[in-house]
Each structure stands twice: as structure tokens, then as C-alpha cells.
Write a protein that binds this DNA or RNA. Structure first.
Lengths: 149, 149
DNA sequence: TTGTATTTAATGTAATTACATTTAATTTTG
DNA sequence: CAAAATTAAATGTAATTACATTAAATACAA
């Protein structure tokens, strides 16, 4: 993967400049891996994210707005995202009883089953990070959090 | 920014799982910052990346294929990317003399001037990371490299 | 209560992207 | 050398995305 190594080689103006590129590049890299992992399930990362948020509700419905607020990437298109999930019969969409502007979205058993399947593959895949110690991972998470502050 | 903090709060299945989400999220976050920074220059991140690659050539032209190989994000659309740069008169495109299939792309003085302007803003902006020590940044870069291996 | 403002979701659209195909030029092979 | 294979870039397209606008319902204020 050409650039992955080149990143180490390239001489950057500063450690900051390298970190910026490195964070973006590594983010894209892992996002790509995740996309590939989800492809066999005909699931995009955003759709997967929404399904997991809905699962987190333990059966309670959520409005589209509530979903948007929980999503990792601010998407203006949650409506159409939910469309796709409805089409595939993974979630149910229905008018919200107490506010007819709003729409309740609810994960279906089929959606839950799908997530369980993905979880299994995901758990397998995560083993790819066995070369990192727990300490490494904690430190990485700390530094990324610091980076954003 | 809701999620940024929620990331710290949310309880993940594992440190690995958190790192995956954290890397993607932080990558998107910083990419967004960069996009905003480039917006006043009517420059997308990919276009900026191409211009910088061309600047690195110190006046020598590059074929589209050579550009693709150096780009951070594998884009299948380098042709159209270069189109935009040509439109804006930042680069020149001409037939490659020794291989008429190929196309030489060359950064123009206007393109170099633009980059210099962006550099200045960029240098200002990077100060946002002053809260991180040099050691922090080096460690972050190391851990990201490790993460990809 | 009635008109105005706000909120929620859906939609229109233009730009971007990924992926496949096409065109033209060059290289390889028989 | 001629035909086939490969290479480089451009193009077609369908899907995705960002951004603005619309439509419908609700909240609020006079």
C-alpha cells in the first residue's frame, strides 16, 4: 500500500503537519476496511451506524432527529438513510403518535439478526490489532481525544 | 460538538473498538476543519493535495498516473480533478512528448502563489495544536503507524 | 384564537465519488 | 511487420453527499 509506508518516509514540515495527514490518512484507511467488511451485508457505514444506534434503544423507537444527534458523522441525509433501511426491511418507520411532524424509527428483528452477524465478523476482524498492547490502544485513544481538544 | 465528548463517555466493547471509532471520527473531524480552511480559496482537499504534489516536483511536469500514485486517497478521478485545476488556471495540461497516451501536468506560478497563501493560513491554524507537546505528537504518529501495520 | 415562527422530515439539485467502459497510443508477440 | 495485449487518460453512470428549499405540524404570541 504505497503511501502507508511513504507516510513514515516523507519529511513533513513539522510533527503537527505529519499528525494532521496521518490522522486523516489512517481514518480513511480504517474506514475503507470497515466498508469492505460491511459490503457482503449490503450495508454502508452510515447505515450500520444507524442500526447500532437503534439497537442501543432496546426496542424503543427514535425520531430521525434523535438519530442524527447520535450519529458519528453529521449527515443531513438521515431521511434517505432510513429509507434504505426501510427498503431492506431492517427497520420500521411510522408516524410518531405524540408529534405528527416526527417519525419514529424502530429496529426490526431482521435488523437485529443482521447486526449479530456483523458483530461476529467484526470480532474476528478486530484481532488484526493484537499486535498493539492494551496500553498502546489506551494511549492512542487519549492522544486522539487530546488532538481534538 | 456533541459526539466529541460522547466518545470519551460512551462505553465501548473494547479499547480496540473505541480506537477504530476514534480514528475514523477524528479523521473526519480534522478533514472537515481542513475543508473549511480551504473553502475561501475555492479549493477541495484533493485539489490541494494534487497542487502540493506538483509543487514538490520543483517545476518538473508529472503524468496523471504519477499524480495518482502519490495521492493520499486513491482517487479514480484524477482526470477530472486536474480538469478543475486547469479551469482555474492553477496548472497546465499538455500532451507528454515521449508518450502521447500520457498527459503532463505542470503547476503554474498562479498555483504556486495560491499554495503560498494557503501555507500562511495553515501555519496560523496549526497553532491550534500547541496544547500538545512535541512528545505527544511523535507518540501519536507512532501509534497511528502501528495501528495500520 | 389566529397569525407568525419554529420544528421535523422530506425533497430538489448540483457536485462528487466509485466503478466500469471507452478511446487512443504504445508495447509485446508470433 | 501485423495482430493482440497492455497502458494512460477520459468519459458514462449510478449512487452518495452537501446544501438549500419545501411541506406539514406544532408552539408561541398578540
Amino acid at each position: 500500500m504505497g503511501i502507508a509506508n511513504e507516510l513514515q518516509q516523507t519529511n513533513f514540515a513539522s510533527e503537527e503537519a505529519k499528525a494532521i495527514v496521518n490522522v486523516i490518512f489512517t481514518g480513511n484507511w480504517i474506514a475503507y476496511q470497515q466498508q469492505e467488511l460491511l459490503k457482503p451485508f449490503d450495508l454502508s457505514m452510515q447505515q450500520y451506524n444507524v442500526l447500532r444506534i437503534l439497537r442501543g434503544q432496546n426496542g424503543k423507537p427514535m425520531t430521525v432527529l434523535a438519530i442524527i444527534e447520535r450519529m458519528l458523522d453529521r449527515t443531513s441525509n438521515a431521511s434517505r438513510l432510513v429509507d434504505k433501511l426501510v427498503e431492506k426491511k431492517w427497520v420500521l418507520r411510522r408516524e410518531c403518535p405524540n408529534d405528527r411532524r416526527a417519525v419514529d424509527v424502530l429496529i426490526l428483528p431482521e435488523g437485529l439478526a443482521l447486526l449479530q452477524q456483523v458483530d461476529e465478523i467484526q470480532n474476528q476482524w478486530v484481532k488484526r490489532f493484537e499486535h498493539m498492547t492494551q496500553e498502546d490502544l489506551i494511549k492512542l485513544n487519549e492522544l486522539l481525544d487530546l488532538f481534538r481538544n
